[in-house]
Design a protein around this nucleic acid. Sequence first.
DNA 1: CTGTTAGCGCTTTCAA
DNA 2: TTGAAAGCGCTAACAG
Lengths: 343, 343
Amino acid sequence: MSQTRNTRKSHGMVTAQDVAKEAGVSLTTVSRSFSEAGLVSKQTRDRVLSVANQLGYSPNIAARVLASRRSRLIGLMVNNFDDPENLNLFRYVSAEAQKRNFHAILFNTSPDRQEAGLDSMESAMLHQVDGLLVSATRLEPAIIARCASQDKRIVIVGRKSRRPEFSSVYCDNEDGAAQVADDFFAKGVQRPAFVGGSPTASVSLERRDGFVKRIEELYGFQPIVREAGSNDYAKGFATAKALLDLPKPPDAYFCSSDLLAIGVTDAISEADSVKTGERPLVVGFGRTMLSRLKAYDLASVALPMEEMVRTATSHLIDTLGDARTGPTKIVFPCELMSPEARK
Amino acid sequence: MSQTRNTRKSHGMVTAQDVAKEAGVSLTTVSRSFSEAGLVSKQTRDRVLSVANQLGYSPNIAARVLASRRSRLIGLMVNNFDDPENLNLFRYVSAEAQKRNFHAILFNTSPDRQEAGLDSMESAMLHQVDGLLVSATRLEPAIIARCASQDKRIVIVGRKSRRPEFSSVYCDNEDGAAQVADDFFAKGVQRPAFVGGSPTASVSLERRDGFVKRIEELYGFQPIVREAGSNDYAKGFATAKALLDLPKPPDAYFCSSDLLAIGVTDAISEADSVKTGERPLVVGFGRTMLSRLKAYDLASVALPMEEMVRTATSHLIDTLGDARTGPTKIVFPCELMSPEARK
DNA sequence: CTGTTAGCGCTTTCAA
DNA sequence: TTGAAAGCGCTAACAG
């Protein structure tokens, strides 16, 4: 190979080669000194590291990825940017990933983007993400196929995966919803209603199904069910408005998220029908910051968001290595909490 | 070179080489067919692309990054995961980046993480991010130094950069705050107060300074100033509580964020002193979802979040190429809006 | 424990 | 317009 260049490459980047030369060891030894395993004597390693430090060397990730076929990058696919709670997804995924020397690369798959899901998936693949964390919502079949074909490890966080090939980490949405039904029943609710978010979002569906099922068991009839269309405040508001116009409006609303519940609550506060009569119950889901606002002080089903997200992230990272740990489901419990409950 | 392997590498990945062979062209031509520029005849290109497609080829990003020294990755450094508004940062950065075939890689620099700022910076460098988008808060000097040394392009979004070497895209926080002062004055407020978030966050400081300055001009004295400590609901609540216990509590609160304002409002609602007298004014900043909640219906200074974030992102991407476009400042106007104002 | 030797898959001069 | 060749900087067998 023509060594027409001098030690420092034209780009001014110090390479492992430079360090090797300077420390009087081989390139391999430098490489090894930078990988965790103890393939190198502490003595040599220390020297290498110190020389590297002196020279201002740091390994080139791209080269590492190319050679090792591992990127230490996990793709984070998210499509809901309306629910404030999703901020916690970013927070804990990034925190947990970084703790383990991984990083999250963001894929916005929200439906209002042109090149949504599948394209993101492609990009993700190209970026050699080691694994994929998919937030709550439904995956398009095309995407699923694409993943499967690459047998990338995928963990779905927030909802149960129907596809057996994916792991998922979630809370027991059905059970949480059933608790609400029980509560309604115990409180003598007559006309229970469910207000869901996006009818394609599994989380919302799971909560709906759990609720409907238990209501049927308890009451012998189905609750009123409305899908707001998406998980957002205005939609919750509008949906409740419509419900309040019914001849006999519901006397209790179970909403598939706190965000919707806030909207529903506000609609109720405005309604004339309510000002005269009894105030209907409203229960949300998530026990997020929103449910804690004093002005609402909403009953809500609590779920261990941080633990869920961290678990999902570390589970993903942990199982990247083993060819087949097989898809796993990790379930966390939910618990309906009244607003007074201090946490 | 020993060609001991067959066409398809052991890893089952189709390479540009494979495509070249199959299409009867050179590796170079394949590469060129995949880069935008028209360095290749339409005819050849089409053939290459079709063959590639047939073979299921897609370029390996790591190799591309290694060879080209460009990653099409922008680092997004964020340290506030409490303010729901920050979700919009993720939303619009990722949307805008993806639109331009870039991706955002997330760096959580929140102070509660051990290996916060500087380490993230290191990682960012290693990941060969082409540029860095830094959200509103203050940058540590060490980080600044590190960036400068690599002369990476950096854009600060949400606040004015004090360092001349960085570009920033922000709204005129001082002016927005001054508008609030004017409003207070016009409404006959007697004892104005400012409630800030983190005293190290420039956004909060800019808003404070703008407010204090104008109040002084109008009133000839300084408003009461309190720093909640961080931009979060509970802190806002607690701060207002303390203020309400003063012998002569403020009759108007300007808060550096809607989140704080909500907390302040709730504290006020609870206070005995208020139940009897006049209800003090509360004004927030951002005109976020929170300020629109009917239960609060908060006056707030509106800022063009989407435009700001998108502009910052595309400005960053646009200026990656040119060695020295020189740091730029792009300012958007703010406007105080009363709750009634429909938007 | 350390070094040698091949690449990983792509971009990029330089020549044709 | 196309191709040949030389790496980008690192990892990973395989020896020793």
